[in-house]
């Protein structure tokens, strides 16, 4: 890696101030950023670690019933403590390996918005609110394509608020090498309708499968999806699967998620 300065502030305000320096960058669990630095693919002047900020840690229940996860909370903590939202806890428990889960954070995952990451599917399907140091962003507005989000330069994700659905499940079909999602589908059934978010599949990053949402809102059963399909066009095609394969898996995983949630 290239040389950089390092700061570990204790408050959000200090972190925001520290990130004002040119080419300063936030450091969550480092599970994406550190390998990138090791390969010399990034050259930040300063890393600002967010893991020492206690107000960004942990899982709690909001007044409106939402499960609130601090932006620097590691996946392992979500897996252990988000029992009020079992599908979310299960998703966190299925990310990477124990080392990744003990370090990687929800804020880092959502800020990075890897097209094969798991949390984006949970946030989008749950209609979560992404809270930053100065505003709240609805999940529908937050994800803007592969590795692209609504976050501004230096803006940090401080909390994520997940409304808790009546029923939900995440089904992840693992890419054999990385075990990220080759296709992951998060289905969430709320009183006023069903949301279906798909990760891993599309060249545009995480997306909502609206046809499935409509069908499931009328009849929350796997059979309701019969005959539905997503076009292979625009799906990622690579060594691990063609666009057609991914499009096929979207349907299979959605059905399985509905079955698991029902």
């Amino acid at each position: 890696m290239y040389a950089f300065d390092f700061e570990k502030p204790g408050s959000i305000a200090d972190a925001v101030a520290a990130l004002k320096d040119e080419d300063a960058q936030a450091l969550g669990g480092g599970q994406t950023l550190i390998p990138t630095l090791k390969q010399r693919l990034a050259m930040p002047s300063k890393l600002v670690s967010l893991t020492g900020i206690s107000e960004m840690q942990g899982v709690c229940r909001g007044d409106d019933g939402a499960v609130c996860v601090g932006g620097a909370t590691p996946h392992a903590v979500v897996a252990a403590e988000a029992g009020d939202y079992p599908a979310l806890a299960a998703l966190a428990a299925g990310i990477g390996d124990p080392a990744v889960r003990n370090r990687g954070t929800i804020g880092g995952s959502l800020a990075n918005n890897d097209p094969a990451a798991c949390y984006p599917a949970a946030a989008l399907a749950s209609a979560a609110t992404i809270v930053t140091d100065h505003r709240e962003i609805a999940a529908d507005d937050y994800f803007q394509g592969m590795f692209t989000t609504a976050l501004d330069e230096g803006e940090i994700v401080t909390e994520v608020r997940f409304p808790v659905p009546e029923k939900a499940a995440y089904m992840k079909f693992e890419q054999p090498a990385s075990r990220f999602a080759l296709v992951g589908v998060f289905v969430a059934k709320f009183a006023d309708g069903v949301r279906v978010a798909v990760t891993g599949a599309s060249e545009e990053g995480v997306f909502r499968w609206t046809e499935a949402e409509q069908a499931l809102s009328g009849d929350f059963s796997a059979a309701a999806l019969d005959g539905l399909s997503v076009p292979a066009d625009g799906m990622i095609g690579d060594l691990h699967g063609s666009g057609a394969y991914r499009a096929h898996l979207v349907v299979v995983m959605t059905k399985r998620a509905v079955e698991a949630a029902a």
Binding site: P176, A177, S178, L239, H240
Partner: peptide, 21 residues
């Protein structure tokens, strides 16, 4: 699982554990 793959230009597509299973 395993298999090293090159593209037609001789770039190794499986150059890390992200792609080499």
């Amino acid at each position: 699982l395993e298999g090293a793959a090159y593209d037609e230009n001789g770039q190794l597509l499986t150059g890390s554990y992200m792609d080499y299973a």
